[in-house]
Design a protein around this nucleic acid. Structure first.
Length: 564
DNA sequence: GCCGTTTTCGGCCCGACTGTTTTCAGTCG
């Protein structure tokens, strides 16, 4: 599929035109096209062949023609033309906060800045500060922007971000001054990676000094390394996380605006723009303070109200990406996506028999506390030596143990499932014989070695086995803390479709295998998804939330996942 | 560049903040 390639091209064209000072709306049009292509699960070539490109909202005749040209020739005239007089190093400067296209163009035209190192030079020798419109403070901000860019250009994994947000929220709640508080932004939308963390707070007593106290407490919270700004309604700090420092913004809002602010700061940007332009058509105006008809505020306290004023059903945060959800909300036809409470169990957990840390009893206790009905124990098989994989004998002993434990758990309406994460060996055969697999409740198959040897073919062969229900690590992104493997996901998806096997959405830390994109494609093809944490420790069971979040972003319904 | 049961031309989301100005441009979320 050329979708992603084309997305990159259009994004670079947008960058180049932006720096050249082309009309902002033209730049926006290219960016929108890039985003559409990046997220599209259909093959753009197929749509182009059917002559349906212009049916996609946001793709008009101009961009359709350029797509056609690229598909036919492998080249795009507009791309060459746009990039011809732009040094490649200049485009990366757009990623520096406090530095935008206009300033970059000015620096390039006046000082010949063509790269990050050029920029550092003109800051050091004072030539940048001498430019018109520039001053010491602006230069200082750019310098700070560069520092931030070099230190924290990576987006942090959602799990680390969730933990940072939770600890700050708890810290603020302990003050007793807080009425409502929650994380907004991409964290609330459950994006796999998060840039900044946004927290929204509403004081119990508005108008008094409580707001100032909350801001004060925030800037002195544990983990805060630096305060970037602290005003009456907003504060920004840098907080230490597992993978470096991260910016956290706190916004203090009025109770009457809480819903509007939550909606606004949750985004995404594209979703919000669509809402606002709809509002405008209706003679309304939406801002973070509320929905206004002329001077009069007609909604704002609750998010539902904001959507209702536009005639829309409330949209789950995970769907707010302008991928058609607004139109469906208008038609009252939003799909009933999987809910966090729909999860009745975890379908991939390791015990201390292999490389986990928990006993069967501890896992059962945790499962009960999570409100589950079942957990599948899927320890490694014998060949996975580094993870103390179970021999057939040890697995049979574990099965007896589980049977015994289940008898005592019966009154609690909870059971452990007898399972395995059976290894797919170098020749594509499985690490246990069928006679053993047959005795198990749940068989997950996965590759753990020979990452460079015919991975795709081995997975396809394993899919032919009648006892295998699920393929784990289908995209091979990361596995047991090791490097991932290269797999032809197209073939794996086709294989799952053909054999009726499920693919695992694995949520342990940053592994999230499947990712959102392939999860969505699998759903569209009617392939079942199995959600398991693949966890090895107590905290890991809670990571189910990440898996469900990704599933919701992919619009999975209850019926799309395996439930026992 | 895209889009249109008020438009095939003239629109295209909104507000805050900052720093540099002397009324506003640039940037961000």
């Amino acid at each position: 599929m050329k979708n992603k390639e084309l997305a990159v091209l259009f994004d670079r064209i947008a960058d180049a035109l932006d720096i050249k000072g082309e009309q902002a709306f033209k730049v926006l049009a290219y960016r929108r096209a890039a985003r559409i292509l990046d997220e599209m699960t259909d093959d753009v070539a197929r749509i182009a062949a059917a002559g349906k490109l212009e049916d996609i909202p946001g793709i008009g005749s101009g961009i359709a023609k350029k797509i056609g040209e690229y598909l036919a020739t492998g080249e795009m005239q507009k791309y060459k033309e746009a990039l011809s007089d732009i040094p490649p190093g200049l485009l990366t400067l757009l990623d520096i906060q406090t530095l935008g296209a206009k300033t970059i163009k000015l620096m390039h035209d006046e000082l010949g800045v063509a790269s990050l190192s050029d920029l550092k030079k003109v800051i050091a020798d004072g030539r940048l500060a001498a430019l018109r419109g520039m001053g010491d403070k602006k230069v200082e901000n750019i310098r700070k922007g560069i520092e931030l860019f070099e230190k924290a250009s990576q987006r942090v994994s959602i799990w680390a971000a969730l933990r940072v947000a939770a600890s700050l929220i708890d810290h603020l709640k302990e003050s007793g001054l807080v009425d409502r508080i929650e994380a907004a932004g991409s964290l609330r939308r459950m994006k796999e990676t998060v840039g900044d963390i946004d927290i929204l707070v509403c004081a119990k007593k508005s108008g008094g000094k409580d707001g100032a106290r909350i801001i004060e407490r925030f800037t002195r919270a544990p983990g805060v390394k630096r305060v970037l700004a602290a005003g009456a309604t907003k504060a920004s700090v840098m907080v230490a996380t597992e993978d470096g420092e991260r910016q956290v913004d706190l916004r203090l809002v009025d109770r009457s605006s809480y819903g509007a602010a939550l909606q606004y700061f949750t985004g995404s940007k594209a979703h919000n723009i669509k809402l606002r332009s709809m509002a405008k058509d209706k003679g309304l105006k939406i801002s973070e303070y509320g929905v206004f008809k002329g001077e009069r505020k007609i909604a704002g306290a609750a998010e539902e109200e904001v959507y209702a004023t536009l005639g829309l059903a409330w949209v789950p945060p995970e769907m707010r990406e302008d991928r058609g959800e607004v139109e469906l909300a208008l038609a009252r036809r939003l799909p009933a996506i999987l809910d966090y409470g729909d999860i009745k169990g975890d379908l991939h957990v390791h015990s201390d028999a292999s490389d986990g840390t928990l006993t069967l009893r501890e896992i059962a206790d945790l499962g009960l506390r999570m409100g589950y009905s079942y957990i599948a124990i899927c320890d490694h098989s014998q060949s996975v030596k580094y993870a103390r994989g179970l021999s057939p004998d040890r697995l049979r002993r574990q099965m007896k143990e589980i049977d015994a434990l289940n008898r005592s758990l019966k009154p609690k309406r909870f059971r452990l499932l007898k399972g395995t994460e059976v290894d797919i060996l170098a020749d594509g055969s499985l690490d246990f014989p069928g006679s053993l697999l047959k005795e198990l409740d749940f068989v997950v198959a996965a590759i753990h070695s020979g990452f460079k040897k015919n991975v795709t073919e081995r997975i396809l062969k394993a899919m032919e086995n009648p006892y295998v229900k699920v393929i784990a690590h289908p995209t091979g992104r990361l596995i047991s803390g090791r490097e991932g493997y290269d797999v032809d996901i197209e073939k794996v998806i086709a294989g799952a479709k053909r054999t009726g096997k499920a693919l695992e959405l694995n949520a342990y830390y940053d592994r999230l295998d499947l990712d959102e994109f392939n999860c969505k494609r699998a759903r569209e093809l009617g392939i079942k998804i199995s959600i398991g944490t693949d966890c090895h420790a107590a905290s890991g069971l809670e990571m189910m939330r990440l898996g469900v979040g990704i599933a919701r972003r992919a619009w999975l319904r209850k019926g799309d996942i395996i439930r026992l």
